[in-house]
Design a protein around this nucleic acid. Structure first.
Length: 610
RNA sequence: GGCCCCAUAGUUAAAUGGAUAGAAUGGAGGAUUCCGGUUCCUUUGAUCUGGGUUCGAAUCCCGGUGGGGUCACCA
């Protein structure tokens, strides 16, 4: 049959059927009505499940070409398609929608494709694949990671995996905000109040210890402001004149001047933080190919800004501060260097961008950063463009919404944050409790059990966050801990574990599951499963185009849910016909593999038992 | 105030301009001699508002309302 030859000739087999149908529809309209039709007018989509059929053609756009009723037009085209495409075995018409029925032989072949490909749905990169650099995480070294960072890290990692699955070469990068006035604040507070406390002496995780001093700085600062205001100073003036903030500013100048004592303290405290971060990253299962530090890139940014001044792109004021006037671009004036010559965030990002493009042949740069920085990236893109970098305009800011608590926004300075480490620890406790009640892990060692609790806890957390549209602000209520039932990670992990359990039983019974699909007559449940399964390559592609982990999450859930219905209604191991039994085992195995592949795009592991 | 984003069942959330707006959770009721009861089935309940474009609008355009962000010599 032509369709199968066509399939084999295409490495990229997404939407093959839709494309074939579309081409035949164009042909049909030419032959039947003598008219040319625009490709975009031919809409072929998957039939909604309440109707009979597999693919649906919308015939409304053709009515003015056919000059016939919707029903008659659909009848004409349907007949033509049945005669010209072998695997279309029939059609029905409902309200101007032409539903095409595709023969089971086609779906059998689809299962064969999937079953014989461990990386079904994924494309591999080649020498001429595009290089995508993805920046995510981007922590400050003055406080530990919190729930907001978790959303960032999970999105960044997942987008990276999705881009890889679409055949791109990917470099995961992290820019560490390791310098600046905010870092000096925690250093200063430690110097004043720290009594030489260290992670070792206190038993605290390094990033947590440093974070405590950042909070202490803010408390001191607020006290001083209140005192000055009490003496009759205005709030704004007090904020500027408070002794401790001026000490912090002086410390930043000392740091930029390479003062040895300041630099030593800085290195020491940053190293505490890095040790802490490494632990959190490991727990979350995220990693980076290349880490940049702003302490290394800000000078490059400063040089770029000064070049801009020389070339008349930016202006230097009498007090030495440097500004970009973006009035003509519809934006405001933006400071690039302070009057004391020190750098700001924007300066650093200019330097970081420049060095990245020097280090890698980047085709596509993605910044995974919260939506409160939309303006920042708009400006960054413009500034780089003005500085003469042709890629400046191409930066893609993947912005995502805040994570809010029931009482509102998290504020690290006020200590109202959900700490990343605490949250994960809580999730693991819940997973342990649920698992112990079920007792499926009896006989496992404590170490094996802990590994599974970790997998399930992280699965719950990651799925909970990634299934939500990244654009949307999400509410997280720590009181109602994340569900393990319904549309959740553990539900899908459970489905996977269940499949593995059946496969183990089959192996124990000496059944060999061949890669060859047995030629049996499928029932409706079986073909329904294959139809969902065969969408996977397309979902991977769409997820890549839209940078959307949520599409993958929805797909995997749909697949798992359909499998559970199948599993509930139809026996696998008790099926008397051996060929049918093997077919079902192969189907189950392939679905398990696809769940695993889909979840890998979300950074979620699947357990063999749970 | 300028600019940007968001608005769908009580709650969390789907839907390249297409059919009767699809799920989960919660509530109510039920099934399963089962290969893992974290399963399955039934029921309840939603597109903020007013115009416009279209054969067709949750979706696109304009005006409201509500919420959030941003416009720092913070990052």
């Amino acid at each position: 049959m032509t369709i199968f030859l066509y399939l084999r000739s295409q490495n990229d087999n997404t939407k093959v059927m839709e494309i074939l149908i579309r081409n035949k529809v164009i042909e049909a309209i030419k032959i039947l009505y003598g008219q040319d039709v625009d490709e975009k007018q031919v809409q072929v989509q998957t039939t909604r499940k309440e109707f009979t059929g597999d693919k649906t053609l919308v015939v409304f756009p053709f009515l003015r070409l056919s000059k016939k009723s919707p029903g008659q037009t659909a009848e004409d085209i349907g007949t033509y398609l049945v005669n010209s495409i072998g695997v279309i075995s029939g059609f029905n018409i409902v309200n101007g929608f032409l539903n095409l029925v595709i023969d089971n032989s086609y779906w059998m072949a689809q299962l064969g494709n999937a079953a014989n490909d461990e990386k079904y749905g994924f494309r591999t990169s080649t020498d001429d694949s595009e290089l995508v650099m993805i920046e995510y995480s981007s922590p400050n070294t003055n406080k530990p990671l919190h729930l907001g960072h978790i959303r960032n890290n999970l999105l960044g990692y997942s987008i990276s995996e999705i881009m890889k699955a679409n055949g791109n070469k990917v470099v995961n990068t992290n820019i560490v905000n390791d310098r600046g006035i905010h870092i000096c604040k925690s250093m200063l507070a430690w110097k004043k109040l720290g009594n030489d406390e260290t992670p070792e002496s206190t038993g605290k995780k390094g990033d947590h210890l440093v974070g405590e001093y950042y909070v202490k700085f803010d408390q001191l600062y607020k006290t001083e402001i209140a005192e000055l205001v009490a003496q009759g100073m205005s709030e704004d003036e007090a904020k500027d004149k408070a002794p401790i903030i001026n000490e912090a500013r002086e410390m930043l100048r000392q740091w930029e001047a390479n003062d040895p004592e300041t630099r030593d303290l800085w290195k020491r405290m940053n190293n505490w933080v890095y040790t802490g971060f490494a632990e959190t990253y490991k727990t979350l299962g995220v990693d980076f190919d290349k880490i940049y530090y702003e302490s290394n890139t800000y000078t490059i940014g400063r040089d770029e800004v000064l070049r801009g001044v020389k070339e008349g792109i930016f202006e230097q004021m009498d007090d030495n501060s440097v500004w970009a006037d973006l009035g003509k671009d519809g934006l405001d004036r933006k400071i690039l260097l302070r009057s004391d010559g020190t750098s700001v965030y924007m300066t650093q990002d200019i330097g970081t961008a420049k060095i990245r493009y020097a280090d890698f042949p980047i085709n596509h740069m993605v910044y995974v950063v919260g939506n409160e920085q939309i303006y920042h990236f708009q400006v960054l893109s413009l500034l780089l463009d003005k500085l003469g970098y042709k890629w400046g305009k191409d930066l893609y800011h993947f912005s995502y919404g805040m994570v809010e608590l029931p009482q509102g926004r998290m504020k690290s300075r006020e200590g109202t944050v959900v700490d990343a480490d605490d949250l994960v620890a809580d999730m693991i406790d819940v997973a342990r409790k649920v698992s112990e009640e079920l007792g499926k892990l009896d006989g496992y060692s404590d170490q094996e059990k802990e590994k599974i609790y970790h997998t399930v806890a992280l699965g719950a957390l990651k799925y909970f966050i990634l299934k939500v549209d990244p654009k949307k602000t999400m509410l997280f209520n720590p009181e109602e801990s994340i569900d393990f039932n319904g549309n959740t990670g553990p539900f899908i992990q459970y489905t996977y574990a269940r499949i593995q359990s059946v496969l183990r039983k089959a192996t124990d019974a000496g059944i060999v599951i061949t890669q060859q699909v047995p030629a049996i007559v499928m029932n409706d449940k079986e073909s329904a499963l294959i139809k969902i399964l065969s969408n996977f390559p397309d979902v991977v592609k769409e997820a890549g185009l839209n940078h959307s982990p949520a599409l993958v999450a929805n797909f995997v859930y749909e697949l798992a849910k359909e499998f559970n219905q199948f599993y509930h209604d139809i026996t696998i191991m008790n099926e008397p016909d051996e060929q049918v039994r093997i077919f079902r085992l192969l189907l189950a195995k392939t679905i398990g593999q696809t769940i695993k592949n889909g979840f890998s795009l979300l950074g979620i592991e699947v357990p063999e038992r749970m």
